[in-house]
């Protein structure tokens, strides 16, 4: 799992690349310092082509931690496959999901 980061209007956009599954989820969760603290971040999923329940669990975990610490996570660029996972698990109810990362980052902070 590779993780890229960029910044837009002072908001960190984290972009994991590859598969977010049970063999990479724990690596992903410890992959960015922005996952803790009260900042607001966007996770850009455009380069994730597969997600399973463990991968989803890691996103939920990051969201919970961020929100407990007063921060927030938004998601962007879910392809059909990923969206389906959010749909069938009802996880869409926990996340703000945007078409593109820049808009997700834009009006924050």
């Amino acid at each position: 799992m590779m993780i890229r980061e960029r910044n837009h209007n002072g908001v960190t956009i984290v972009m994991p690349v590859g598969r977010l599954d049970s063999s990479s989820a724990s690596q992903f969760m410890s992959g960015s310092p922005s996952f803790s603290g009260n900042g607001k971040i966007v996770i850009d999923l455009s380069e994730v082509d597969f997600i399973d329940s463990t991968g989803l669990g890691s996103l939920v975990g990051i969201a919970r931690k961020k929100r407990e610490q007063g921060g927030d996570v938004r998601l962007a660029c879910l392809n059909e496959k990923l969206r389906k996972v959010f749909e069938i698990t009802q996880a869409f109810r926990l996340f703000d999901i945007y078409d593109d990362a820049e808009t997700a980052a834009g009006r924050q902070g």
């Binding site: 945007y98 593109d100 009006r107």
Partner: peptide, 9 residues
């Protein structure tokens, strides 16, 4: 916000 979330579309 709904429009923003669907901005690309």
């Amino acid at each position: 916000t709904v429009m923003e979330k669907n901005r690309l579309f």
